[in-house]
């Protein structure tokens, strides 16, 4: 006997069931999409997803930039010039990466401010705040390492000063400064080290931290704003 011809609905359902049975990914997605969030969640609570979007912009434009960028003393400035002046829409890719980084920092402060004002870091969300604080520092470190890569006058001298300032810290300072400079003097290796930190190491840390941050946010659930009328009416404050 020939097997029955699957209905259109089954054409979708069968592969989904196959995946679900072996991984549970389908119900995970259903949970993520259809979980309930507070009814009167505020616009201020969209700043976190705006941050994720900005991070994705940085990743995509960063990958495009990396296709043309040369992290060498001779090539760096040249390639920035090429990207800005000649490559098709290169100015847009570089511009979005540059201004995206400013936007990232502004959103970071706003998101932190909203979490602070709403008291959303309180029990049981202390770890969410802590992962956020680590993200803050990682993002600031991204700005620091990214600034040098343009390799124009301002980039170079601001980085020299920043490294020297790090070097003044007691005990660890000189080691950090030597680590960043790759030796006692600023050299071409400094540029490759900054580049590798900026496009590999730190973004890896950021992705891992965002994952943990979001896991905590979803696991604990967000709350409605402390001034929520809806909760007050239900007598739940």
């Amino acid at each position: 006997m020939a097997p029955p011809i699957p209905t259109p609905k089954e054409v979708v359902q069968i592969p989904l069931d196959w995946v679900e049975e072996r991984s549970g990914l389908v119900s995970l997605h259903k949970y993520l999409l259809f979980r309930n969030v507070p009814k009167d969640i505020s616009w201020l609570q969209t700043l976190g997803s705006a941050l994720i979007t900005t991070f994705m912009i940085q990743v995509v434009t960063g990958i495009l930039l990396a296709m043309y960028y040369h992290p060498t003393a001779d090539g760096a400035f040249e390639s920035i010039r090429y990207i800005t002046d000649e490559a098709t829409l290169g100015w847009l890719v570089r511009g979005m990466h540059k201004w995206g980084s400013s936007m990232f920092v502004i959103l970071l402060f706003l998101h932190m401010g909203r979490v602070f004002l709403m008291g959303s870091y309180k029990y049981p969300r202390e770890m969410t705040w802590l992962t956020g604080a680590i993200l803050f520092q990682l993002v600031m470190f991204m700005s620091l390492t990214g600034y040098l890569l343009v390799f124009d006058q301002r980039a170079y001298w601001a980085s020299v000063v920043a490294i020297n300032i790090n070097g003044t810290a007691p005990i660890l300072g000189p080691f950090i400064a030597e680590f960043l400079k790759v030796g006692p003097e600023f050299s071409e290796n400094t540029l490759s080290r900054f580049y590798s930190l900026h496009m590999l190491a730190v973004p890896g840390g950021i992705i891992a931290m965002i994952g943990l941050h979001l896991y905590l946010v979803i696991r604990l659930g967000v709350t409605s704003p402390p001034w929520s009328k809806h909760r007050a009416k239900a007598g739940d404050v």
């Binding site: 999409l33 309930n36 969030v37 507070p38 009814k39 969209t46 997803s49 705006a50 979005m96 201004w99």
Partner: peptide
């Protein structure tokens, strides 16, 4: 919150999408 809330999709994600689009437009504008 779980009892009285609304589903993330499509309600909250709509707000998130609007905020993200505004962000993208601002970055491109700059």
């Amino acid at each position: 919150q779980v009892k009285t809330g609304k589903a993330f999709f499509p309600y909250a994600i709509f707000h998130d999408t609007v905020a993200s689009l505004v962000t993208v437009v601002l970055i491109m504008g700059m």
